[in-house]
Design a protein around this nucleic acid. Structure first.
Lengths: 242, 242
DNA sequence: ATTTTTCATGTTGTCAGACAATTGACAAGG
DNA sequence: CCTTGTCAATTGTCTGACAACATGAAAAAT
């Protein structure tokens, strides 16, 4: 087992900290200085900086220096970084509480078997919860996880409700990314009752698959959001490739 | 004046071609081989590959090699690369036609003045159109552009309806990225009539600002989609930074 | 014959040092 | 005042080398 992250990931983290602490428009220290400060060679540092440049966080000018670009364009996206609703709400200063948490083990449907591959072993755990803001339901979230990944008894000690946060804290399996499909739906009657709205009211719906670094699906989630409370943004870049 | 792109951009382009031509799961040539083939040093090649790795297109394993990851997870996202609906539809093999194109010049509202900064000079051009698939409306798109960027007479020769495609083809101003906010809305009566649905039916709504490389907004667009025809996906990565 | 160990090989990860290309500022000269 | 030359700082690229790791084959042990 690996005792810690790769040195490159550590470097990326430290570099991200430096970038995030530098005011937009300001110049970063020169590459030789930064390399010495971070204890890596300039070649390795440049690889890390190239990754950040690809994300549009910094901009380099030959003969001048490297500059931090305004976070207003990147950080507020909220949909490029995977985080739980609880974490998102905390980041934007929204007080939310959890109500109506349900955890149950089920036999997987053929549809779920296809999503999880042969991994589900037929048993899945379903975690559903309602998110309240100022005592009004604003989101309804359902996570479905293979039973061998998440057992109902795992969730007892201080479970916040977020399966994502739980998996991230546990550190295993290693999560890589999530593929989310976005739709607008009319509320079916059961969800309308849970969210205290009328059947047919509009909801923003995310259905997401959470992948491990090996490419396996470990979480299939459905999220329903009342319009107006959360602002989801995504940044698209022009002509990336292909 | 620069006669062509930077050598690094040329390298990125050639590398993108090689990656896109390599079947998913296949191994790329080794770094020394690739570096020699592309006429750059291994350090430079590694910077370019690190950028692609950050986009999730390739995956490197120390001691083994570099592998192309399945495009099913990345290319189909459709929401990370900025492209017009027409281009998107063509890419997924959907036959669409345009109906009800309206182009008119207006005086900017204070809200629009704030979006475009002082750039609008008070006059904007509004291009609205309905997208049909199999003779049924599936999308309603509105683009609002400062009048000095886009004149109504610019759009005569073979205008496809997409302001984005027009600006990309013209090459000026240089576009950088688009910030899109995603919502679910109930169709207001005027849009319902245009899309031949009932007032209050659910629609997926994008409101987007298109930025130039200098950070100016040159296009404010509102898009309404009938659920089910287009599948919008977004890939989120874990713990990127901050 | 089978299993285990060892080792050679190929790959990516990192490093050190050097030089080229570009930019910006300042001084010298017209 | 404007132009030009020089210089220092910074990023861009290159070369060569070694370390870390994975894989499979050969050798050794059972």
């Amino acid at each position: 087992m690996k005792e810690s992250l790769h040195p490159f990931q550590r470097l990326q983290g430290e570099l991200a900290a430096i970038i995030s602490m530098t005011p937009p428009g300001e110049k970063l220290p020169s590459e030789p200085d930064l390399a010495e400060k971070l204890g890596v060679s300039r070649a390795t540092l440049r690889e890390a900086m190239r990754a950040f440049e690809g994300q549009g966080l910094i901009r380099r000018k030959q003969g001048v220096g490297t500059f931090v670009v305004g976070r207003t364009q990147v950080i507020e996206t909220g949909l490029e970084v995977l985080e739980s609703i609880e974490t998102l709400a905390e980041r934007i200063g929204l007080k939310v509480t959890m109500g109506a948490l349900h955890i149950q083990q089920k036999t997987a449907t053929p549809e779920l078997d296809e999503i999880f591959g042969m991994d589900s072993e037929g048993q899945v755990v379903e975690v559903s919860r309602v998110i309240l803001a100022e005592k009004r339901p604003v989101a309804y979230l359902v996570d479905i996880v293979p039973a061998h990944i998440l057992k109902p008894e795992d969730l007892n000690p201080g479970f916040t409700g977020s399966v994502l946060d739980f998996l991230l804290r546990r550190g295993a399996p290693m999560l890589a990314h999530s593929s989310t499909e976005i739709q607008a739906v009319a509320a079916p009657s059961d969800i309308a009752r849970l969210m205290e709205i009328q059947r047919g009211d509009v909801l923003l719906n995310f259905s997401a698959r959470l992948f491990t670094v090996e490419g396996r699906v470990v979480d299939y989630s459905l999220s329903y959001f009342l319009p107006g409370t959360f602002r989801f943004k995504v940044v698209r870049r022009v002509g990336n490739l292909v």
